[in-house]
Every structure is written in C-alpha cells, then in structure tokens.
Amino acid sequence: MTACQLTWQALGAQLLQARTGGVELLYLSPWYYTKAQRAARGGVPVLFPQFAERGPLKKHGWARDVEWVLTHNASGADSHVLEWEWTCGGAGQPTWPHQAHLRLRAQATASGLEMQLHVHNTGTSAFEWTGGLHPYWVVGNLLECRLTGLQGVSVSDRYNASRTFEAREAVQCSGQAYESLYDTPGPVCLELPSHTVKLSMTGFDQWMVWNPGAHEAQRLTDMPAADWQRFVCIEPVRVSRPCRLQPGGSFTGTLKAEWWPNSDGMGRR
C-alpha cells in the first residue's frame, strides 16, 4: 500500500478511506465490505441540495444516492487525486425544478486531505441549497479526544442550543447523541493521543459536530453498535444561510485536513 491512497465508490462520489502519509483519516464501517451494502456508513458523503430535514426534499438530498462520473484518477508515491462530476435536475428530480452541475475533487498527500465541492447553476432559474461535506473522522477512542477551536462560538437554531465548547473540552457523548451546529468558518483541531488533525474550510460557513452516542448507535443497522466511539463527524456546511445561485452562478467550498504527530501524548507539537 502506498503512503497516500484514496478509496471510493461511484455512488455519491463518496470517499471511503483516505490514507495520508501512512495515517488513515476517515472511519468506514467494517460492515461495508461484509454486508454488500451500497450505501456506506463513513467516509465523506456529499450533502446536496438539502441539509438534513431542512426543507421538503429527501433528508440530505440525493447527491449521495446517485452515481457520479469519475473524470480524473492520478496516483503517485506522494499524492492521489480524484475528480468526479454529476449533473442533476430535470426529469431525474421532478420535485426540484432546477439544474446544476457539480464537481468534487479530493487529494491525499503526506500531510493530509483536501476536498473541493463546486456547484454551478446551469439552469434558467435561481435556486437556494443547503448541505456540504459529511466526513467521518476516525479516532481510536472518542472519549480520549479533544476538539478545540469552538470555544465561545454560538450554537445555531435547533441543534442543542444550550451547548457550547469550552477551550480544550472533550467531545464526550457519555452515551447520548451529540449534534451541534457551530456558527463559525474558523479552523478547529481534533486532538487524538497520537496526532492532531487541523480542519479548515472556505466557502462553507458553519461546522456541524455529530456523533450518535451509544443509544442511537443501537438503532443503526450499517455499523457495529460499539463503533460510535471510533469516529466523530465534523462537517463543513451551509445550513443557517442557504447558498443562493442565480443562473450561471457558482459556488466553491473547500475542506482541508492537516495532521501532525503529537510530541507530548495529548497536545500540540
């Protein structure tokens, strides 16, 4: 196996795993390969044109449920680049009377992972959309991790509005589901005992932090129940402020994950 390698499926142009410099960044349910399920629990699903149930469409839209076209695949000793395209709207989605062309790019390098989502309005009517990227970051034990960079940041609308992160607070679910939408585009750091992952974004303007916890994980049929402790979703999204695109208009959102080993166990270099 090379030091930088991406695995994926055409359905949803979904990254499944991202090995960067010998470190795996993404969680993927071990049942994906053994139960022959088309949908994958883990990796990086694309959410478009609707986030969750925030509108009349299917939950999280349908970008993750259709096959995209792989247009580029270049791998070497120190990099792996993938690009996909997908055209949506028209007869394929009668409940969404618009047209759009999407491009997704992913690149793994020794220092991390970069992704770019481009949305172009190819129709004759303006539309608004919500969504983004839904990465599952792999951890050895969620309760031994910290998520920093959200201290003092407001929490938006219905998502656990009473909860905020204090400096260096652990992402600790204690068995309960955690779901909070943080109203900032600023970078955050996921600190594991072995290494730290710094996440930054452009274009997107909020972070969604989600983990099912022990109780909700019991109801998920596509992963072992105990695996709720093996990942946390930290997602760059557009939710509270939908992105409006006029005919011919476009949007580009990026996600960058950089990692480095910790020299003092838990903490910074």
Score class of each variant (00 low, 15 high):
Q206S: 07
S240K: 03
A91V: 12
G22L: 07
S79H: 14
K256T: 11
P97V: 09
T2A: 12
V239N: 02
A106K: 06
V119E: 00
E179P: 01
T20Q: 08
F48R: 03
P45Q: 11
H60P: 12
S200Q: 08
L82A: 15
P187D: 11
L25C: 08
Y178I: 02
E169Q: 10
L16A: 06
G149F: 05
H80E: 14
G89R: 06
Q99E: 12
L28Y: 09
F51W: 09
L113F: 11
D157P: 05
L220K: 05
G21Q: 07
V138W: 03
L11F: 14
L142G: 03
L102H: 09
L117G: 08
R269I: 10
Q99P: 08
E169G: 00
S111L: 07
S75K: 14
Y27H: 05
G248W: 04
T2I: 11
A74M: 13
G203I: 03
V119Q: 00
E166L: 00
G132N: 05
E83Y: 02
G152E: 01
V171C: 08
W31Q: 15
A10P: 14
K58L: 07
F51V: 03
T130V: 05
D264G: 08
H215P: 00
G132M: 02
A91S: 14
R54L: 07
L104D: 00
H80Q: 15
S194A: 10
C4S: 13
R230M: 03
A40F: 11
W86R: 15
L117A: 10
T164S: 01
T252Y: 01
G152D: 01
T254V: 09
G22M: 09
M266S: 10
R146S: 04
T202N: 06
E128D: 09
S75G: 15
R230G: 04
Q246N: 08
V237W: 04
E169H: 00
S162H: 13
L70T: 12
W259S: 09
T221D: 15
V153Y: 00
L70I: 14
P56Y: 13
Q14I: 09
T184P: 00
A217S: 07
K59Y: 08
P187T: 08
G112E: 04
E166M: 00
Q172K: 06
R64L: 04
M1P: 11
Y33G: 15
R41A: 10
D227A: 01
S250H: 11
L26Y: 11
G248T: 05
L143S: 07
